[in-house]
């Protein structure tokens, strides 16, 4: 499969003589169509990394290739077309005065003509299930609805990559789940590559691969299952311990023999039921 993101030896410091690097020699690559979760403590460099990928921050050292194209001053605007970003605070990315106006913002910037704009805005709103809200003002929407609008505003530009920069962290559980289901659903229909920066264990579990950041460095890169086995370290990575692992630990304490490897909640449920039925 083709490589869509390739990051080579990226370093970045917020202040010039700051010995503490926000990004410290980070390298990784992402294949077309992958879902990657980037986890780590607050301040570990996750958001700095995300903002480097579309040239909002310019790294001190290193190179970034998006879809084989090197990120430079000349290519930055073209590369931004291919990357859609959704940020943490729903309030701070709502530019338009109504839902439809906000979705159209990116199209206006790309000088799309009016008729095409109307059509594409409509399609994007349908994709995120917000068509009924086209004329609503942001103050009348919930956080989850605002994030779906933000997603529509990104989808309307038909990007190849979507970066979710802690975009579910300020939402209630229902809004969060709807947002994740929506992204998963869209991936069924379009060839989207997703990078999600998160503390949410469920969001991380949906990923094909986890990148763990600490102190500006990329410390681990693995399948979520492999990482979820190391319950103790998860908290240090800024994640929760998955429920199934917590239950397994509690059961072990009470003298029940549980499988050693990581089980998902469904697998755990199946295992418990099987054991109960045997008894």
């Amino acid at each position: 499969m083709a490589e869509i993101i390739n990051v080579k030896n990226l370093s970045y410091a917020y202040q010039e003589d700051d010995p503490k690097l926000a990004l410290d020699n980070v390298s990784f690559s992402v294949n077309d169509g992958e879902w990657i979760a980037i986890v780590g403590h607050n301040g570990s460099g996750k958001s700095t990394l995300a903002k480097s990928l579309n040239g909002i921050l310019v790294p001190d050292e290193g190179e970034i290739f998006i879809n084989q194209e090197k990120l430079t001053d000349e290519t930055v605007w073209h590369i931004r077309d291919e990357i859609g970003m959704i940020f943490q605070n729903p309030e701070n990315q709502f530019v338009g005065s109504t839902v439809a106006d906000d979705v159209a913002f990116g199209l206006e910037n790309h000088q799309v003509n009016h008729d095409e704009m109307v059509r594409r805005v409509q399609t994007a709103l349908e994709q995120v299930g917000m068509s009924d809200f086209a004329d609503h003002e942001p103050s009348k929407l919930s956080g989850g609805q605002k994030q779906r609008v933000a997603l529509a505003g990104v989808l309307v530009l038909e990007p190849k990559i979507i970066i979710l920069d802690e975009s579910t962290s300020m939402l209630d559980p229902l809004g969060r789940q709807e947002m994740l289901d929506l992204v998963a659903d869209l991936r069924q229909q379009y060839p989207l590559t997703v990078l999600s920066i998160t503390h949410d264990i469920n969001e991380a579990a949906q990923a094909d691969r986890l990148l763990v950041m600490d102190d500006g460095q990329l410390v681990t890169e693995a399948d979520p299952r492999d990482i979820f086995e190391k319950s103790q370290q998860l908290v240090e990575m800024g994640l929760d311990v998955p429920f199934s692992s917590q239950l397994a630990m509690e059961l072990k304490k009470l003298g029940v023999a549980v499988p050693d490897h990581y089980l998902t909640n469904q697998e755990m449920e199946a295992w418990v039921w099987q054991s109960l039925s045997k008894g």
């Binding site: 239950l247 059961l251 009470l254 003298g255 418990v272 054991s275 008894g279």
Partner: peptide
């Protein structure tokens, strides 16, 4: 688990309570 046919005498609210109840039913003798 109840939907599959298991029985709980009380509703477990926390992981610890659930584990205790399951351990009892699984015959965790200790």
């Amino acid at each position: 688990l109840t939907q599959r046919g298991a029985n709980f005498t009380t509703v477990p609210l926390t992981t610890a309570e659930l584990a205790q109840e399951l351990a009892r039913q699984l015959g965790g003798k200790r």
